[in-house]
């Protein structure tokens, strides 16, 4: 693996970490300020599922394409 690839991967990992931290802050915000019976939890779950779908699909794609 060349140095430029390592740098790109490191930048991508840093970016993913930043996204994770921001989403964790959102997570705590929802549980701190949600009101009984509001739409916060269903919307949070949809958001988490979409985030996970993007991460899983892109990781699988990158993993499989590197093997081929």
């Amino acid at each position: 693996m060349s140095l430029s690839n390592v740098i790109i991967l490191a930048v991508y990992a840093g970016f993913l970490l930043l996204i994770l931290i921001i989403n964790l802050l959102y997570f705590f915000q929802v549980f701190k300020y949600r009101l009984p019976g509001d739409a916060s939890i269903p919307v949070l779950l949809i958001h988490l599922m979409l985030i996970l779908a993007i991460l899983i699909v892109s990781s699988l794609y990158l993993g499989i394409s590197s093997l081929l």
Partner: peptide
């Protein structure tokens, strides 16, 4: 591969932006 990485990063950012805006609006 870089395109897939870039796109996934972009859409992760976009979803985070949308959810943050929604929280800002809904709360």
């Amino acid at each position: 591969s870089f395109l897939v990485m870039g796109l996934s990063g972009y859409y992760l950012f976009l979803l985070t932006f949308l959810f943050g805006s929604w929280l800002d609006f809904y709360y």
